[in-house]
Amino acid sequence: MATQKIHFFTGKGGVGKTVLTASYALAASATNSTTLLTELSEESALSTLFPAHKKPQNLSLDKWNAYGCLEEYASLLIHSASLSKLFLNNPLSRSLINVAPGLQELAVLGKATSGPRNIGKPMNYDEIFIDSYSSGHFLSLMTAPQSFAEIFSFGPMATQSQSIDLWIKNAEFTSVHIVTQADELSIQEALELWKNLKDLKIKADFILNRFVDTSAINFKKLPEKTRHFFENIQVQQSFAQAELKKIKTPTTLIPQAFETDLFKIVLATATHIKDINEV
């Protein structure tokens, strides 16, 4: 079996992560035999995105709730269902789980990397696409294994944390895509996240979303306010591209979709991604 791959999508809030994750997963399902599209956010956005009859058979949807991942994970480590129930219902464990920094994040990553680590029920997907947290929270997510490896000196939690840490830093297995728009704040946040991830030894690439081709616009003929609006887009985009070029990291451009229906945007974007992949 070919090695499984997982993809994390992150970026500033509102840059279009969910729609892009869905588009990438849909594009991948055209060539994969099985693909999983899952989300970490508390509000379920994916389930409303795909009209049931329009989802390809070989694309599965899921939602990974952090606490649920932890329960699942604890029962795997404890081996006995009754003991793990006792453990999870105990007031000490419960409050520990609720406040212990990063424990739930660790469990999410434990699940994401369970394939290559041979933990639990095998997830038989060629690729897993994870609509992940926005920048700050995503960074805490990726830091969790390392900080837990430091907190626990030995025992299964320590070894688990170390092995999870290795797999999320393995670029052959884990890809991180930072989604951004061309505006200055989004670009700043994307670059900062990229740098922080680099310090953690995690490689990431960029997806510049909602890119507008302004080359055909005849600015001189536009009335004032309209011209300002489009000039501003042009200025932001060249600034964004210049900033991203400086750090020599692959950037994929995704064109602005002129639709209000989210599923139509997913379809258009997935087609665009398939075209890029063929070239």
Binding site: L83, F87, L92, F152, S153, F154, G155, P156, M157
Partner: peptide, 22 residues
């Protein structure tokens, strides 16, 4: 008895140093 068991599990999962911290 049940709390002692929970502590045992915690110790098994996290090591005794962590339990001391806790």
């Amino acid at each position: 008895q049940s709390t002692a068991k929970v502590l045992d599990i915690l110790k098994m999962l996290t090591g005794s140093d962590f339990l001391d911290e806790l």
